[in-house]
């Protein structure tokens, strides 16, 4: 069967059958991920680092109370900022490009499934595996914090976890987009690493340089910052435990003042856009180009 002939027929199937197909592909993808060394490397290193952070932040909590939770949370946010995009992007980028190269994609599409189902199944499977990895990390850090310091703010912690999860979904989406665009597996991986570098370091450094060199206005600086999903995650996470955005200096004071109650929704919507837009583009590209 050639891949090009099938789609229209299969789209006519009842929705339930389509959902079952997606689920089956997702399970297969999850199974593959859980059995891969990458997955365990990320899970163990994230959980380990998170636990170490939660432990080292403890000695002062006796005197500092909530302030030391703030430092634990801030460290955890920094760790997440570095690791979650890296694992999301690299594993996301490995999905289609790698399967295209080793023939797995050809094998998958030789079954009675269409490209749309394959795409969403692959994304769901990858996302589920990485969700497990990130929840394992946050769960470990949370248990350590709760047991050793006794203190902590469950509401803030859960919200940070959910924001990290949203960041993860966005990064897997961007990874999938890279994966559909790349011609070869190594170039997909390379692009993923470069994207990570750009989001985590180069974007911020560029903004800092621009702000200093051109006296960028404070509103411009703030909005250019939250366009970056990694920064959107950090600022939204900060809002869950910082007493006020004033701690971010003039830009924070401006944002809290100008946006008021809409502050967190605006930041989070940037994060959600980074899930939806790359997925839409990747899906479009994957279904339109019939390459194997």
């Amino acid at each position: 069967m050639t891949a090009g002939a099938a789609p229209d027929v299969w789209l006519d199937l009842p929705e339930k059958a389509q959902r079952r197909t997606i689920l089956a592909i997702a399970r297969k993808e999850l199974d593959d991920a859980v059995r891969s060394r990458w997955f365990w490397m990320w899970t163990v290193s994230f959980a380990g680092l998170a636990a170490v952070l939660a432990m080292t932040a403890l000695p002062a909590s006796r005197i500092a109370g909530a302030a030391s939770y703030g430092r634990t949370a801030a460290s955890l946010v920094t760790l997440t900022q570095i690791i979650v995009p890296l694992m999301g992007l690299t594993l996301g980028a490995q999905t289609i490009a790698f399967q295209r190269e080793n023939g797995a994609l050809r094998f998958l599409l030789s079954h009675p499934v269409n490209r749309t189902e394959s795409f969403w199944g692959l994304y769901a499977g990858k996302a589920a595996a990485l969700t497990a990895a990130s929840f394992a990390g946050f769960g470990t850090a949370g248990v350590v914090t709760a047991l050793r310091s006794g203190g902590g703010e469950a509401g803030s912690f859960v919200r940070i976890t959910l924001l990290a999860w949203a960041l993860l979904l966005a990064m897997v989406a961007v990874g999938m987009l890279i994966s559909t665009l790349a011609h070869r597996a190594p170039s997909a991986l390379g692009s993923a690493v470069f994207t990570w570098l750009a989001l985590v370091f180069l974007g911020d450094l560029g903004l800092m340089g621009t702000a200093v060199a051109t006296r960028l206005s404070v509103p411009m600086l703030f909005f250019s910052t939250i366009v970056n999903p990694v920064e959107a995650f950090r600022l939204a996470a900060l809002a869950t435990f910082a007493s006020s955005f004033d701690i971010l200096g003039p830009a924070g004071t401006y944002a809290a003042d100008a946006l008021g109650a809409a502050l967190v929704p605006v930041i989070v919507s940037s994060l959600l856009a980074w899930i939806l837009v790359p997925l839409a583009v990747a899906w479009f590209r994957f279904t339109r180009h019939q390459d194997l």
């Binding site: 946050f138 769960g139 914090t145 902590g152």
Partner: peptide, 25 residues
């Protein structure tokens, strides 16, 4: 010192989700 009970519960729930996902696979 705020009691850590709810944080502990939430964290165990997260670990539960992670484990269930892995075992489902």
């Amino acid at each position: 010192v705020r009691p850590g009970g709810s944080l502990l519960a939430a964290s165990i729930l997260m670990l539960g989700v992670a484990t269930t996902t892995v075992f489902a696979a």
